[in-house]
Design a protein around this nucleic acid. Structure first.
Lengths: 236, 236
DNA sequence: ACGCACCCTTGATAATTGTCAACTGTTCAT
DNA sequence: ATGAACAGTTGACAATTATCAAGGGTGCGT
């Protein structure tokens, strides 16, 4: 009766660099026990400290990774389609270090962690892809640490804007991909401080209108922000 | 004439979890073009931005990883025997994100990055070990980010002391493994601030005499520091 | 022993960042 | 339309952290 079930379309997952080189058989094994679920906004998907039962893949929407300590909370990252999160915990079979919640209505694939580990052993192309992905994740977090330790909040914001602009192919005007409260937390500052930081960037040609940013003087802003490939270039 | 050369002893490297499960043949291939070098203190081994030609293994001494931006510098980590550094860059064949310098006289193994990548493809046990190692590295950096974003400098210091104490099997008195200037940088603060932070921990039973720390009231300090396994336990 | 570095500390001050409270503007359900 | 809820902003203030300058202590080479 296999006709009646499991016609779920995993082609979007398959297209991910992480899974693209796998053998068809190994991929079929991996998605056998997987399932796709759609969540409403503001739903907590995982909690830090929980055992890592599933590797998650965001197909649609947006997921926010955050952490808490002593009644404080901070946004660690935002995951947008199509990519995975909590890969390291799944691989190590260790508890999650971050919690995750949907920011909007989101469609997420859940792959049992044990199947991921099995696929890793069974399929060497998958193993290679995992290592490459993990190394990239590691390097991203290192860059973020440099950003946090070497720059003031104003410099972090300026460089964030330049990165966003580059991600939108360099147009002078673009929209922030998230609300300002989350952005503040992601950048390691308070919302009040972010408000003032935007004002402080006005002399460098940054205009803010709601969530729309205009960079009037690219040179000037870059002169202040001093972007550095070893911090701001997320492709290397 | 192989008797005359290359009798270098790589057993310390072999014992590392990263290499322990490799086949003898793969390990021999990996070590073939490797070499061991002894460096005096304060020598810069690698510079951020350089291509990652070698995976490094510290056999003796201590190596400091640091980063620079805009004339500022910060200590990212300290590597002690026996472990590797800049694994992610080697794997991805990407430029180093951090510089490295010896803190003391140090003996370091240099493994050509291309041989590491070759061994990764040839030996699946090695591939598995690399993934496990990388996942652990990733999780360490995430924990460090949480430490930085969720805690004040005083809280970071308090938790650092508790971690050090645990690493020394919980004895009330122990020595700092590094000078205070580097420690300050590692914790994301200035030396002056670290000095004052130590003073601020006196009421919680922390005594400082040179580089020797005594924790007189474990409970009290823990009450302030609120250590958390998802930040401070580096084994998970 | 002496002087010279160098690290650490301390004090004074400034810059940065966070907190609290109030206010604006918008959204959205009723 | 109305008003509750909420994100964002602003101002006043406090806490945290950094900077600058000076002094104390220690180690080391001569």
């Amino acid at each position: 009766m296999r006709v009646a079930m499991a016609q779920t379309d995993y082609s979007a997952v398959r297209d991910l660099r992480l899974f693209a080189e796998m053998s068809d058989a190994a991929f079929a094994d991996l998605v056998r026990a997987a399932y796709v679920q759609t969540f409403p906004p503001q739903i907590q998907l995982i909690a830090e400290g929980d055992p890592s039962d599933f590797l998650h893949v965001v197909l649609d929407g947006a997921v926010e990774l955050f952490s808490e300590w002593n009644r404080r909370e901070t946004v660690m990252a935002t995951v947008r389609p199509t990519s995975t999160f909590i890969l390291a915990a799944s691989i190590r079979d260790a508890p999650y270090l971050m919690s995750a919640r949907t920011m909007e209505k989101s469609r997420v694939v859940l792959l049992p962690s044990q199947d991921v580990r099995a696929a890793f052993v069974a399929d060497s192309a998958f193993a290679r892809a995992i290592v490459s992905e993990l190394a990239q994740c590691y390097r991203s977090v290192v860059k973020n640490t440099k950003d946090l330790k070497l720059r003031t909040s104003l410099e972090r914001l300026a460089n964030y804007l330049l990165r966003q602009q580059r991600a939108r192919d360099g147009s002078a005007t673009f929209d922030l991909p998230t609300d300002k409260r989350r952005l503040a937390s992601r950048l390691g500052m308070t919302p009040e401080n972010l408000s003032r930081a935007f004002k402080s960037l006005q002399p460098y040609g940054v205009d803010v209108s709601g969530g729309t940013i205009t960079i009037n003087d690219q040179r000037d802003l870059e002169g202040f922000a001093k972007p550095d490939a070893l911090i701001d270039d997320y492709t290397t």
